[in-house]
C-alpha cells in the first residue's frame, strides 16, 4: 500500500518536473516560459520530497520531516524568484508574443514599464 502510494507520488512528481521544463523549452516568449518552472516544477519537486519524507518515516525509526522544510522553502521562494525575473524582463523590455493583450492603466499601456507606475514611457 505504502509502496504503491510512494510510486504514484514519485511518478507524479517526475511528470510535473518534466512538464515544467517542457514548457520552458517550448513556449514562444519569456513571460510564457516563466509559468512552467514556477508552478509545475515546484509542485513536481514538492511531490518527490513528500514521497521521500514518507519513505524515510516508515523505513527508519522515527519520523523524518525535514523534507517538509525544503518543500516549504521552495513554495515560498519560487514566486519570489519568478517575480524578480519578471521584473528584470520588464526592465529590459523583452519582446512578447504579438497576441499578448496589454493592460491599460491610467494613461498608458502596461507592457512597457517606467519604474513608478505602469505608464508607457514617453
Amino acid at each position: 500500500m505504502l509502496d504503491a502510494a510512494l510510486a504514484v507520488l514519485v511518478l507524479v512528481g517526475a511528470f510535473f518536473t518534466l512538464v515544467g521544463s517542457w514548457g520552458l523549452a517550448k513556449m514562444p516568449d519569456f513571460f510564457m516560459r516563466l509559468h512552467g518552472p514556477t508552478k509545475a516544477s515546484t509542485l513536481g519537486v514538492g511531490a518527490v520530497l513528500v514521497a521521500s519524507a514518507l519513505y524515510f518515516s516508515f523505513n527508519t525509526d522515527g519520523v523524518s520531516l525535514h523534507e517538509v522544510l525544503v518543500t516549504l522553502f521552495l513554495f515560498m521562494t519560487a514566486p519570489v524568484s519568478a517575480h524578480m525575473m519578471a521584473k528584470a524582463a520588464l526592465h529590459l523590455k523583452l519582446k512578447q508574443v504579438e497576441r499578448t493583450r496589454s493592460a491599460v492603466v491610467e494613461s498608458g499601456v502596461a507592457n512597457s514599464y517606467d519604474g513608478t507606475s505602469f505608464r508607457r514611457k514617453e
Binding site: 513571460f31 510564457m32 516563466l34 509559468h35 514556477t38 508552478k39 515546484t42 513554495f75 515560498m76 519560487a78 514566486p79 519570489v80 519568478a82 517575480h83 519578471a86 521584473k87 524582463a89 520588464l90 493592460a103 492603466v105 502596461a110 514599464y113 519604474g115 513608478t116 507606475s117 505602469f118
Partner: peptide
C-alpha cells in the same frame, strides 16, 4: 497576495507599483 497569485491559476505577478496600489500580472 502576490506570492499566492504566482503559485495559482496560470498567473505570475510581475510588478508592484511604488505606491503599492496596483499589481501587474501576466496570465498564460
Amino acid at each position: 497576495l502576490a506570492n499566492t497569485i504566482s503559485l495559482t491559476p496560470g498567473t505570475v505577478s510581475c510588478e508592484l507599483s511604488t505606491d503599492r496600489r496596483q499589481l501587474l500580472i501576466h496570465a498564460l
